[in-house]
Design a binder for these strands. Structure first.
Lengths: 148, 148
DNA sequence: TTCAAATTGTTTGAACTTCAAAACATATTC
DNA sequence: GAATATGTTTTGAAGTTCAAACAATTTGAA
């Protein structure tokens, strides 16, 4: 393994992150295609954001995704048409729209998660990556940093 | 620092990668905007791919970017219009189109690199990340794995 | 040599993603 | 109840990408 100087290290880490990220995304996208699921990765991300939102209203979901509410509306429009989400005005505050996942969406997300887990596991087995703990600690520091 | 089981570790690493990646991209995009540069991040990526290609012909650049040649053609069209790239048929093999960077493009890339380096450096200083070497080794293994 | 196959790139049409701004709907405040 | 605040949708425009059809050039086998 080549020894990197601290300076080279800083420069190279981002390149590696970008590369790895793009590969994972591409593989997951291909997997959806292979399974005949007519959803793009960004649509899956919307479904995931709905699943993870404490209060799944438009503004919360958009914030989690880092897109405008307007963009989310168009995304939700097509997901609704395709039968992946429900939409209901909140009874308490009728300005809010509660977005929900249909059974169909939950099935896709479960399948997707299973594939993802399998992929990650097989990678780690193949690589015999010993440094999980350190890798995570470093990544978490980075992630926390960027959240501010 | 929370201690993760090996299994949790595998699941969480991807989430962190995604998060970090998106943040960096957003920050860099904002920086371009702030500087009044009328280029999207994907256009900058095209310029970077040109810079890094040994033989900067359409197919090589597209391959490096992971997009089709047709998609790259449209990207190069607008970059050419905006004055960031040159296009010349290869004299040896006239099927090939040699793509080059203009002075304008090189200036943008230099600025972008400087910003990126500064950002990464300041992050590492703030974090006092001790595990650069290990982090890189792990990421490189992942990256290499995904390249196959 | 010569022409069919392979390589390299462009064009076209369509789908998707996103944004900003304007319009609309509902709720709160004073 | 008018003004303000909050939440969402609509609209119009721009950017990214792909697949398929097309064009130009090179290569290789008969």
């Amino acid at each position: 393994m080549k020894k990197y100087s601290r300076h080279e290290a800083r420069e190279i880490i981002n390149e590696l992150l970008v590369e790895i990220f793009n590969r994972i995304l591409a593989i997951e996208g291909q997997n959806l295609k292979d399974k005949g699921i007519k959803l793009s990765m960004s649509e899956v991300h919307v479904l995931e954001a709905i699943e993870l939102s404490e209060e799944p209203i438009m503004s919360n979901i958009a914030k989690r995704l880092g897109i405008t509410i307007g963009s989310l509306t168009t995304a939700i429009n097509t997901l609704y048409q395709k039968g992946y989400v429900s939409r209901d005005r909140d009874a308490e505050d009728r300005r809010k729209v509660m977005v929900g996942l249909t059974t169909k969406a939950i099935e896709v997300l479960d399948e997707h998660d299973a594939f993802h887990k399998e992929m990650i596991d097989s990678i780690f087995e193949d690589l015999e990556l010993e440094k999980d703990q350190l890798l995570i600690e470093s990544l978490e520091k980075l992630s926390t940093y960027f959240k501010k």
